[in-house]
Amino acid sequence: IRNDLNENALRALAVLDPIKVTITNYTEAGEILRVPNHPQNPAFGERDLPFSGTIYIERDDFMEEPSKGFHRLSPGKDARLRYAYVIRCDEVIKDAKGEVVELKCTYDVDTKGGQNPKDGHKVKGIIHWVDAKTAVKAEVRLYDRLFKVPNPASLDDADFISEINSESLQVRSNAYIESSLAKAAPETRYQFERLGFFTADRIDHKVEKPVFNRTVTLRDTWAEKA
């Protein structure tokens, strides 16, 4: 199923655990980017993707104290926004509990659509995002394997219960998606770029309250462990 979805599912952007990013030197009211519905298959056409000076990125794509090999956003470092520009993190805003709630960034106007910075340095990290002004809040259900072992039939009764995966369903009720996804027909399939393959729920998905279920992750993690 993963191979079939990779070939046939439309691409879209969604952020499941958002951090607000304000691009302080972006002075335009906003713009529309034309992006492919499937980067490997031009026959799927293109879509409009709104962009403005306020966006959401994934919390996992920022580290205040980056570990070795982390090439996404961190203070004083830059990353490329998928289909858009290179941004650099200049300031980190925290709440009273010390949790990061906003990043103040600047963008490089010359890097639109994959262009390299004029100073020639390489930007290694590419992160996904959604436009905060137009994105729609959604419920995203992350389904995973029911058991922690590949073959639960091999377990005896004592081990059967202990090997149930307590995180086989995680619900992200504060996710944001491209606005066009709210109007998706039930059971429409997408790849949320960098996140996995998702389907609009057959019963619960509504324009006023979009609901998407994860069908499968991008990679088979058990196969990688084998």
Rank of each mutant, 00 (worst) to 15 (best):
V86L: 10
D110S: 15
F198A: 02
P66A: 10
I57G: 04
E139N: 08
I177T: 01
A96D: 14
K122W: 10
P39D: 10
R172G: 01
W129S: 07
D95C: 07
R88Q: 15
I57L: 11
F147H: 13
F70N: 02
K94T: 14
T221Y: 13
G98E: 06
G114V: 06
G76Y: 10
I127G: 02
I177R: 01
N8E: 07
N6I: 05
E102H: 03
I177M: 01
P150G: 10
R80I: 04
T134P: 00
Q191I: 05
L33Q: 04
V92S: 08
D157L: 14
P39I: 11
V149P: 03
R219Y: 14
V207R: 02
G114F: 08
T215A: 11
N8K: 11
L218Y: 03
S162N: 13
K225A: 13
E178R: 00
E167S: 01
I203C: 05
K94I: 05
T134D: 00
F51D: 03
F70L: 04
A138L: 11
G120F: 10
P36Y: 11
T221F: 13
H205K: 03
G30A: 07
D156H: 12
A153C: 07
E7R: 13
G45F: 10
E31Q: 14
S166D: 12
N174Q: 12
V123T: 15
I55P: 09
N41S: 12
F147P: 01
F160V: 02
S179F: 00
P117T: 08
L142A: 01
Q191R: 15
F212M: 03
L155C: 08
I164G: 00
R219T: 12
R72H: 11
P210A: 06
I93M: 08
G114I: 06
G114S: 08
S74I: 07
E58Q: 15
K137A: 12
N25M: 09
Q191Y: 06
V149S: 07
L146N: 01
N213A: 02
H38C: 03
D4H: 13
A84N: 12
P117Q: 10
P150Q: 07
P36V: 09
D159T: 04
Y56Q: 06
I126V: 15
D204R: 15
R82D: 12
T54L: 04
S179R: 00
Q40L: 11
N37T: 05
P186N: 11
T22M: 06
V100I: 14
L142W: 01
D48G: 00
N3R: 12
I127S: 10
P75S: 06
V35I: 15
D131I: 00
A223N: 08
E58V: 03
L155S: 04
D78K: 14
A79I: 07
K148Q: 12
Y85R: 14
I23G: 05
P42I: 08
E139R: 14
N116H: 09
K104P: 04
I23F: 11
S162D: 15
A9C: 09
V130T: 15
D131F: 00
R141M: 00
A185H: 05
P152W: 13
D131W: 00
D159I: 03
G69F: 10
